[in-house]
Design a protein around this nucleic acid. Structure first.
Lengths: 205, 205
DNA sequence: GTCTATAACTAGATAGAC
DNA sequence: GTCTATCTAGTTATAGAC
């Protein structure tokens, strides 16, 4: 395994666990068992390392997501909102094949990206991977045409918040707050009806 | 205005904006225009300062919230879920009277508390202010008795996520992503139907 | 490509004068 | 109660040997 990948793996799990600000390069290189200077050699800076960690997932996920969302838009019968949101399940769970704990790590990182470091990662994702978002919006529009673009914008933002927040604080939950342990697939199965119903809520402000 | 309060005010707005990890004591004391050593003199440590910032809000909010939730549980007719969630609007908005930008600051801080610093603040809040949570659960149970305790737990967690995440990333939103500016009351009016519909979603896992 | 050594800086916390 | 000065330990980043 290359030094570069050892760094990426170590950074990923530490970032997911303690946030970008909360993780030092020293912790990363010591977990990865490589030299401190290797981060700067391979990535140039901590900020570029953060981007690289996210890109590894986004490059894997975004073509799959775009494919299923486009298919959903092009099918003859109108998809329900539950269909649209359920379309995310398989691509997200496929990250667990791609990498151990891939699904929850990725969702946790996404959450960090929105709250840590004043949204620079958010900017990075929306500018680098705009196709996922636009196809998602189109799919929602097709299932619920009465929603105004503004309402779609807000409700997708709420959806993002629900999922991302849930995942970034779900480690503690699955361990302590409720005695029944739940895996990531179980949490996703619980959250899909919630967000689908939220987006489907009657309009009227 | 006392040094102690100057520190609390400065810390609050910096914490809300950049997170707990992302804010240094030097930034706080320089915004507050007090000496660096004053933080340690008045609060003992950064961690205690964080607790003090949150306590100022929770001590204001929790008795009001408990009162309205208990009233909702004791009224004769069964409240709708929309009633239950709407019960939060006035208490939350009253924080704007209590302090400028109080509502959004508080909700942002709450979001930080769940993601920064590995949940120590989360522990602090749930152990110090358990009454709010238990009354909330009771109110939801009364409006939707078919929900199992486990489903209530998860859906309230999702609700928390939706609200808290929305608020902790809402500054950027209200400015850039959608041309129509929206104040905090507007966001709350948008989010209530969303979470109410999510909690009210049909069961079946 | 990988290492050691270190520069340049920032963090939280404290001792002691006033 | 507030200040300056400083300690200790942490941070990112880099220069230069191998």
């Amino acid at each position: 395994m290359s030094t570069k990948n050892k760094i990426l793996d170590a950074a990923e799990s530490l970032f997911a666990d303690k946030g970008f600000n909360g993780t030092s390069l020293r912790e990363i290189t010591s977990l990865a068992e490589v030299n401190l200077a290797a981060v700067n050699y391979h990535f140039g800076s901590k900020k570029e390392l953060i981007k690289a960690v996210m890109s590894r997932y986004m490059n894997e996920l975004s073509p799959i997501l775009e494919t299923v969302l486009i298919a959903l838009c092009q099918q003859e019968e109108k998809p329900t909102l539950n269909d649209v949101f359920s379309a995310f399940i398989d691509p997200l769970l496929s990250l667990n094949v791609f990498k151990e704990n891939g699904t929850s790590n990725f969702l946790q990182l996404l959450g960090r990206g929105y709250t840590d470091s004043q949204g620079f990662l958010r900017w990075f994702l929306t500018t680098q991977y705009p196709g996922v978002i636009s196809n998602f919006v189109t799919a929602v529009q097709k299932s619920y045409p009465e929603l105004t673009p503004e309402d779609i914008f807000w409700r997708l933002h709420f959806t993002m918040g629900t999922v991302v927040f849930t995942m970034s604080s779900t480690d503690a939950l699955t361990e302590s707050d409720f005695d029944k342990k739940m895996d990531i697939a179980g949490v996703i199965r619980k959250v899909i009806p919630f967000v689908a119903a939220g987006v489907a809520a009657p309009i009227g402000d």
